[in-house]
């Protein structure tokens, strides 16, 4: 038998799944997908291609960076995660992974991911990756999240970086098209997250996190969801004007944009998030949240299909 110092905070031995969950795999999937779309779009628009192995390592670096930011977030938020039922089973509050270990994992993975990105591509992509980890782990998690109801709006910038990083990895620069992809995710984040927060605002209130429904009420949140959706739609269509998006993208963004708008209007008219709101209204908020995920996947999927599968048919100048 081996001695172990009694400082361990573990209540049960951690499994591989606990370490995977520490990296927020669902967010990581979206991050990787949008980064790959940015990478493909950069190649398609400029004709510059990365060596396939270098591209794969760059994508792995983005995934590791996302995982690192997730681990740092879980380390810092362990106190409130333990109180909220939605997050109480996460690896740290459930006692599987000690806090210090999560922090160490996050910091080491941050360094490794940035180093790998620099080796596989260039300093600009590596710098953007480092900044996006800092943005999520420090600016959003440690500062904004517990300080302002605009936490999701400003913090959304962290999740919007992956396509820019993917683009920079290929070309070494970040033109307007890369920032359009950034803007799509940036303006998509508030309606996406607020739809969820309409369902979970009591949990946030319990831990004094100033999410919009907690500070301004469900009605104001429903209006903000509509406003951001209205802003998002023209931004999502702007790739058609710059030539980044072709017919497939245009049809996808147009049709799904209308559906998103219909959902946002229905939420505005509903009582989702109010005390005693009908089950159907809460279901509407949940469905809007789920649809928003599909929306973003579909938009970036269209970019990917057009630029990686050679199915780009320009709307303007074709």
């Amino acid at each position: 038998m081996t001695d172990l110092t009694a400082q361990s905070q573990q209540k049960r031995p951690a499994t591989a799944a606990d370490y995977v969950n520490l990296m927020k795999p669902r967010i990581m999937m979206l991050v990787v997908f949008t980064a790959v779309a940015g990478l493909a779009a950069a190649s398609g628009m400029t004709g510059v291609t990365m060596h396939p192995a270098m591209a794969a390592i760059a994508v792995l670096a983005v995934a590791l960076g996302s995982g690192a930011a997730g681990a740092i977030n879980m380390w810092y938020d362990a106190d409130i995660d333990a109180v909220m039922s939605r997050t109480s089973t996460r690896p740290i509050p459930s006692g599987a992974v000690p806090k210090d270990e999560a922090l160490a994992m996050g910091l080491i993975m941050s360094g490794v991911s940035v180093m790998l990105m620099w080796l596989a591509s260039n300093w600009l992509a590596a710098g953007l990756l480092a900044f996006s980890i800092f943005y999520y782990g420090v600016i959003y998690t440690m500062w904004l999240k517990r300080a302002t109801p605009q936490n999701i709006v400003i913090g959304g910038g962290a999740g919007a970086f992956p396509p820019v990083i993917g683009w920079a990895a290929v070309t070494g620069n970040t033109p307007l098209d890369a920032w359009i992809l950034f803007a799509i995710i940036f303006f998509w984040t508030p309606p996406h997250f607020w739809a969820l927060s309409l369902l979970a605002h009591k949990e946030y209130a319990k831990v004094s996190v100033p999410m919009l429904p907690v500070t301004h009420g469900a009605k104001a949140t429903r209006l903000q969801i509509l406003i951001y959706t209205i802003v998002l739609i023209p931004i999502s269509l702007s790739p058609l004007a710059t030539g980044l998006g072709g017919w497939i993208y245009g049809i996808t963004a147009g049709v799904l944009g209308v559906v998103f708008l219909v959902c946002a209007l229905a939420i505005l008219r509903s009582k989702a998030g109010d005390d005693g709101a009908p089950g159907a209204d809460m279901k509407l908020a949940r469905n809007t949240f789920l649809f928003s995920i599909l929306y973003l996947f579909a938009l970036f999927g269209a970019v990917l299909v057009e630029h990686a599968a050679g199915l780009y048919f320009p709307v303007i100048g074709g």
Binding site: S43, T46, G47, V48, T49, H51, A120, S121, G172
Partner: peptide, 8 residues
């Protein structure tokens, strides 16, 4: 050299 190819 850089791991990238094509026009810049």
């Amino acid at each position: 050299g850089t791991g990238i190819s094509g026009r810049m």
